[in-house]
Design a protein around this nucleic acid. Structure first.
Lengths: 142, 142
DNA sequence: GTCTAAAATGCAAACGTGTCGCATTAAGAA
DNA sequence: TTCTTAATGCGACACGTTTGCATTTTAGAC
């Protein structure tokens, strides 16, 4: 299973499987949207699971460095994370309700090569996120 | 002229043309790259022009609300701004030297419509930034 | 030029996200 | 069960940004 294979691969590297680590991995494996440290904190507090915020930040960095998570920039001054195992995709963020949906649409694959030829700039990664109004909110506004 | 027309349009709305406002508008009109509050602060201090940082932040918000500036997200935890009058474009950010170049390349124009049909999501804006190695740094590394 | 209302500023304190050092706890191998 | 050290909790800190409030400055009216 997904969660256990991630955890045992960490254990093989000499890291420990703690309650917090297990729970954070579980949270991300269940979530369909990227989550920030603040959101993780809320999820823990709802479960009456006491965790210090420093621990959460450290764990996010840990999972990032171990290629279990990747960073996602959805909101200014708030870094979100999502599973690194997902296929490359971008997000549709609703300005009204804050919901986040995925889209597999991306920039043209030829673009990277084109920009390299044009400018000599070698692209390593890009961020692309869409903001607007989701179907549900559009319905409600009418 | 560009700066004066911006300033007089603000004056027509009942706002005042102060030294700080004039200088910040001038700084953005001259800059070829987006600037953050911190960078604006540095430019002022180099000119021995004493300005409180709160004033800079307030002025950036003011110019944003009056459609003279737009927000640009180049770095996590640091919001940049650039003139709203520029043509729609994106940025090539060098991971080595931090330089920022423009590119007119963007997502396919049909995409907005496609996503609307697919998901009912109405896109209002998008952010798209590229990160990698600029030509100069690639040369230096070799 | 002087007066005046309110826009803009400076200052200090507060905020929110994220980081750090250090003592304590707990995972898991022996 | 013991032991090493990874992981945690705690408090303080760092940084970008915001806010309240007293003071200054703009610019229109006189």
């Amino acid at each position: 299973m997904n969660i256990n294979s991630a955890l045992s691969s960490l254990r093989n590297k000499g890291y420990r499987i703690t309650k917090v680590r297990k729970e954070i991995v579980r949270i991300f494996s269940k979530s369909s949207v990227p989550l920030s440290a603040k959101q993780i904190e809320k999820i823990f507090s709802k479960k009456k699971f006491a965790v210090n915020k420093a621990t959460i930040y450290r764990e996010l960095q840990f999972l990032l460095q171990n290629n279990y998570l990747i960073k996602v920039y959805l909101h200014p001054n708030e870094i979100s994370y999502e599973s690194a195992k997902l296929e490359h995709h971008h997000h549709l963020v609703c300005n009204d309700c804050g919901s986040v949906d995925d889209t597999s649409n991306c920039v043209d694959g030829k673009l990277e090569n084109y920009i390299y030829k044009e400018k000599g700039f070698k692209i390593e990664k890009h961020i692309l996120e869409f903001y607007g109004t989701c179907a549900q909110c559009a319905k409600n506004i009418k």
